[in-house]
Design a protein around this nucleic acid. Structure first.
Lengths: 182, 182
DNA sequence: ACGAGCATGTAACCGGTTACATGATTGG
DNA sequence: CCAATCATGTAACCGGTTACATGCTCGT
């Protein structure tokens, strides 16, 4: 039950249509909660039916017409409730770690190339986050909202830093493995 | 398509019944790929139908009777293929980061307690991993299989270390926020 | 007027989750 | 023998994914 709350957050920051939300999910919020436009439309319908949001009274909503939504007080209250609620961290899932473990059994043939590819991807993502940090969070005092947003970005930066270091370490290990295991 | 391969890996390490697999998923493999017994039974049925595993020829398999499986050559080949295949990293999803972002909009009322709770949980998990490392991976030379397994465990340790540090940092930020934002 | 792209939406599927059912074994 | 537990399994649901359909708008 996270997608509706992600949408409520995005709509509170700025009322938007479905496509606009999809684009914004490709950027900031999507960095740690991605969603496709189908998910977003489905969820917008539910949120409207529940009285959490409403379509902005512009034109009649026919197909192909832009339809913007804004958050109603009930929606804001629900988001506040959810934000403050106690939630267990989801168990972590990662296929690369799974494949590395499998490679200990069936051989490491072929996995090294994908480790390198992942390293490049994480380095790229790290650079993107660092650009955002430089641009949006220059050193110095910031508003409380800004500090919270910076905190979230730091998590992204530190996670990508971890992955680049770990993958580098993993690749170094591989060069030391005896030939028949590679 | 990861669960069947996780099961193949576990079965290659040691032929097991459904319940035994469930227990082992609660431990080692489950640390980065959890599964319930219902998922595992469902998947065992599929894997058997595909000819990747077979039931060990013991007693006739009636309900309530233990039924152990072993991996067939086709299953091992499929696992090797999957392990060496190129796979994109899944976009990262985390509700705590989402909630923190939401709290920048609707207020941080109530979230601090859950940050503390998460910190305790991650510290606990970190301690568990470190115990395993001390017990199973003492300093010194190790087999290639051991080194790969150690690599995976290091990822778990480093991830939990990251979370404890980040949560500590986040809580420190909170104490500096002006009163109306807490 | 028409094709490209914009915007919204339907449908089918798939893996993970939760609740529950049923047969076998074992301890009191 | 009966309850508790072990072991396997069925069913319904839910969110995320993929493929496709349809209507509108705008540039040429």
């Amino acid at each position: 039950m996270s997608l509706p709350h992600a949408i409520l957050t995005a709509l509170l920051e700025k009322p938007s249509s479905g496509l606009e939300l999809t684009r914004r999910f490709d950027k900031s919020i999507g960095y740690f909660w991605s969603a496709t436009h189908q998910q977003i439309y489905r969820e917008l319908g539910k949120l409207e039916a529940e009285g959490h949001i409403r379509a902005l009274p512009a034109e009649q909503p026919t197909r192909g017409q832009k339809k913007s939504y804004e958050v109603l007080p009930a929606g804001r209250a629900e988001l506040a409730r959810w934000t403050a609620s106690s939630q267990d961290p989801k168990p972590y899932r990662d296929t690369m770690l799974l494949r590395l473990r499998a490679s200990a059994v069936v051989g490491t043939e072929g996995i090294e190339a994908d480790l390198r590819r992942h390293l490049a991807l994480h380095q790229q993502q790290l650079a993107e986050y660092q650009d955002i940090e430089e641009r949006d969070f220059p050193p110095g005092a910031a508003s409380p909202q800004g500090r919270l947003q910076h905190l979230v970005l730091r998590a992204g930066i530190d996670l990508e830093t971890f992955w680049t270091q770990w993958l580098t370490h993993a690749l170094a290990e591989f060069t030391e493995l005896p030939g028949e295991n590679r």
